[in-house]
């Protein structure tokens, strides 16, 4: 969870507060966890696939007046042999981003198990469900797009997680993931408009992920739209 501490003394007399936020990224192999992280932090997108051999770790500092917000992104390799390192990414994270590949429905299916495991390790983290490779989804049939979108909305409702379809390659909704994360952590009001049209890169967050405790109480979540 966020903790603030005064930064080290610098020549400049300003005293800066620093807020550290850890965000974990989990999901099946090759869904684009590392790509998303690198895109957000370094604004680089590489077409080449590089397997993550463990947990990738990146930081990005965002300055706001006298406060620095440092995002520490922990990206767990999607292969099974790294899942024993899940606590590194999950424990201590304020937000867990669950990623699936929009063009591979099986990756959405396995979100269930990711969710179970992550929740078992850290039940106070705010989940965010992210569908990746939206730029490839638009090449698929309308029926499939509708099916995967509807299914993803169902998942998001069950998880009480904001749902975002993003494309790292085309810079779609990448920044917004972390804005939403910040908004949910500090209970801020984000004014970015939602995107609710099936076929568009969905951005649903206003009614989701507002209260973790509500998830436990609600028994029959209802589908959006």
């Amino acid at each position: 969870m966020p903790n603030s501490s005064p930064a080290d003394h610098e020549p400049i007399p300003d005293v800066r507060n620093q807020v550290d936020l850890q965000i974990g990224l989990v999901g099946d192999a090759q869904v684009g966890k590392t790509s998303l992280m690198v895109k957000y932090v370094q604004n680089i997108f590489d077409e080449e696939y590089t397997q993550t051999l463990g947990v990738n770790f990146l930081k990005r500092k965002v300055k706001l007046h006298s406060t620095d917000i440092v995002f520490s992104l922990m990206d767990l390799g999607g292969q099974k042999e790294f899942i024993n390192m899940l606590p590194i990414a999950a424990v201590g994270s304020s937000v867990i981003v669950f990623l699936f590949d929009l063009t591979r429905p099986e990756t959405l299916n396995s979100i269930k198990d990711w969710y179970r495991q992550v929740k078992g390790l850290n039940d106070i983290a705010i989940p965010i469900l992210v569908g990746t490779k939206y730029d490839l989804l638009i090449n698929l049939s309308a029926e499939y797009q509708e099916q995967i979108s509807t299914a993803a909305i169902d998942y998001a409702n069950v998880m009480d997680a904001p749902l975002i379809f993003c494309s790292t390659a085309e810079s779609i909704n990448v920044q917004k993931i972390f804005k939403i994360a910040l908004a949910k952590i500090f209970n801020l009001t984000l004014v970015v408009p939602e995107i609710r049209d099936i076929g568009d890169p969905l951005l649903l967050y206003k009614e989701l992920g507002n209260n973790i405790q509500k998830v436990k109480q609600s028994k029959s979540p209802q589908r959006l739209s």
């Binding site: 992280m37 690198v38 932090v41 370094q42 993550t52 051999l53 463990g54 947990v55 990738n56 770790f57 990146l58 930081k59 990005r60 500092k61 965002v62 300055k63 042999e81 790294f82 899942i83 024993n84 390192m85 590194i88």
Partner: peptide, 14 residues
């Protein structure tokens, strides 16, 4: 504002 990517590797056998 960005750090370089670091990898935490497997410390124990899986």
């Amino acid at each position: 504002t960005a750090s370089k990517i670091e990898t935490i590797k497997q410390q124990i056998d899986y």
